[in-house]
């Protein structure tokens, strides 16, 4: 029965109220249909790393502040913590598959799909807009494709990632902060001209 219920990401009201302004040097998109899994695992112990990689069909990034792309995106969040971004409908299944595969390891897998909202920030002034609220050095030489970082954006904590194709940034934010962060982004982007793609 649950499949008949429309899932909500919590930004419906915000999206409905947005108005694009001026020439769109910034695009803000609410990326729907994403599922998220949180994985805790000690990469130095046993064969959990390989097991997880097999279950995901892609490696876990071991270099700090990077992510791997394959069927899913796997973000490094800490030396024993990863966030797996996948399709919403696959998340539950993937989570239980992982849990089964890692049953013999000291690992923790939690479905946190409903706890995160992903935003796409693109356009030629995207970086300038992010720099208004983020203390990271966003210069592509310092923070380029394939890199990600948990950091602060305005007064929220986010996971910021640079898409492989350099087309823009992905901002993953805790659900309860998403409305605030979108308002902040819209305000910061307004002087540049901002476009909100119709979902």
């Amino acid at each position: 029965m649950s499949e008949t219920i429309e899932r909500r990401h919590g930004l419906e009201a915000f999206v409905a109220a947005t108005e694009s302004v001026g020439g769109a040097r910034v695009e803000i998109d609410v990326l729907t249909g994403r599922g998220f899994l949180n994985l805790r695992l000690d990469p130095r112990k046993g064969n959990g790393l390989e097991t997880a990689a097999r279950a995901l069909n892609q490696p876990l990034p071991l270099t700090a502040n990077t992510f791997t792309t394959g069927e899913h995106r796997v973000y490094w969040c800490g030396p024993d913590e990863w966030l797996i971004e996948t399709d919403e409908e696959r998340a539950t299944r993937l989570g239980s598959d992982l849990a089964k595969a890692l049953a013999d390891c000291h690992a923790a897998i939690n479905d946190v799909s409903s706890g995160h909202v992903a935003l796409g920030i693109a356009g030629e002034d995207a970086r300038t807009v992010l720099a208004k609220g983020c203390t990271l050095d966003l210069d592509p030489r310092e923070f380029g494709p394939g890199q990600c970082a948990r950091t602060g954006l305005a007064k929220a904590t986010v996971l910021l990632a640079v898409a492989d194709d350099a087309a823009g940034y992905t901002v993953i934010v805790a659900r309860s902060f998403a409305d605030y962060l979108c308002r902040w982004l819209a305000n910061a982007a307004r002087p540049h001209g901002v476009r909100f793609p119709v979902p």
């Binding site: 040097r25 356009g123 030629e124 002034d125 995207a126 970086r127 300038t128 720099a131 208004k132 050095d137 966003l138 210069d139 592509p140 030489r141 350099a166 002087p191 540049h192």
Partner: peptide, 19 residues
Amino acid sequence: DAFSATNRPAAGDDSTAGR
């Protein structure tokens, strides 16, 4: 400057956006 930062990338050059 209705919008000087538009013209002035905040953090160095703006090659990401091809400008």
